[in-house]
Simulated scan of single mutants.
Amino acid sequence: MDWTLEVVVLPVSDIDRSVAFYRDKLGFHLDHDTANEHMHVVQLTPTGSGCSIVIGDLPSQTEMAPGAMRGLQLVVADAAAARQELLDRGVEVSEITVFDERDGGTFFGFADPDGNTWAVQQIKARAEKPLIPVEARGRFGESG
């Protein structure tokens, strides 16, 4: 039996500000934004990922303090290009650090407006062999 991680709840203080950051600055795909008199829940997914983040105001989404998530990790094929893309979009990012010259040892990081932190790891092999093949991405609601 497969057990797949598909959603991570991210604690934020301002849903609309967070949507603007993750969608407009990071380029995450907006899967859904559902609001009514009882709740507001938003799901966003990084391109190429099978795992999404969910932000909202339901009790399960407000148990952690905004900014409490540390070290969530994204993987890219080219850290320098990804870092530059985020800089061009106005995201404050750290310098690239190479902990190990082997593939997978290069990182940089950033934080969202609430202080949730993200590490971005370079795995060059993702360029030739993405975890979710491009032709399958439409099934996950992604453009691409």
Score class of each variant (00 low, 15 high):
Ser52Pro: 08
Asp16Phe: 04
His38Lys: 12
Val54Arg: 02
Ala20Tyr: 01
Ser18Lys: 03
Val134Ser: 12
Trp118Glu: 06
Asp2Ala: 15
Phe107Ser: 06
Arg126Ile: 14
Gly141Thr: 06
Asp14Ala: 14
Asp24Asn: 14
Val91Met: 04
Glu128Met: 11
Gly109Ile: 02
Val120Arg: 00
Leu44Trp: 00
His32Cys: 09
Val8Gln: 07
Glu6Gln: 14
Gly50Lys: 00
Val8Asp: 03
Asp31Cys: 11
Val134Trp: 06
Lys25Asn: 12
Leu72Gly: 13
Met39Gly: 10
Val19Cys: 11
Glu63Phe: 02
Ile123Trp: 11
Trp118Lys: 08
Asp2Glu: 15
Pro133Ile: 14
Thr4Gly: 10
Thr62Arg: 02
Val54Pro: 01
Trp3Phe: 15
Phe107Glu: 06
Glu85Thr: 14
Glu135Thr: 15
Ala79Lys: 01
Val42Met: 04
Val75Gly: 09
His32Val: 07
Glu85Val: 07
Glu101Pro: 11
His38Asp: 13
Ala68Val: 03
Asp88Thr: 13
Met1Leu: 13
Glu37Trp: 04
Ile55Tyr: 00
Ala77Ser: 15
Gly90Pro: 09
Ala125Thr: 13
Glu142Tyr: 09
Gln61Thr: 00
Phe140Gly: 03
Phe99Ser: 15
Ala80Asn: 10
Ser94Val: 11
Val54Tyr: 00
Ala68Asn: 05
Gln61Ser: 03
Asp24Cys: 09
Leu26Ile: 08
Asn116Trp: 02
Phe108Glu: 01
His40Asp: 04
Gly50Thr: 10
Tyr22Met: 03
Arg89Tyr: 01
Val19Arg: 08
Trp3Lys: 14
Val93Pro: 06
Thr97Trp: 03
Asp100Thr: 09
Met1Pro: 12
Ser13Lys: 11
Gln121Ala: 12
Arg126Ala: 14
Ala119Gln: 12
Phe21Trp: 02
Met69Ala: 13
Val98His: 04
Pro59Arg: 02
Glu95Met: 10
Asn116Phe: 01
Ala68Gly: 09
Gly115His: 01
Pro59Cys: 09
Arg137Ala: 14
Leu87Glu: 11
Ala111Pro: 08
Arg23Ser: 09
Ala79Val: 07
Ile96Ala: 10
Leu58Trp: 01
Pro133Ala: 15
Thr97Met: 11
Trp3Val: 15
Val7Leu: 13
Pro11Val: 09
Leu58Cys: 12
Pro133Tyr: 07
Val120Pro: 02
Gly141Arg: 06
Ala80Phe: 02
Met69Gly: 03
Ile123His: 10
Lys25Asp: 07
Ala127Pro: 10
Gln73Phe: 06
Cys51Phe: 01
Thr4Pro: 05
Ala35His: 09
Gly115Arg: 04
Ala35Asp: 07
Pro66Thr: 03
Pro66Phe: 00
Glu101Phe: 08
Phe108Lys: 03
Ala125Tyr: 06
Glu128Val: 11
Ser13Asp: 12
Ser143Gln: 14
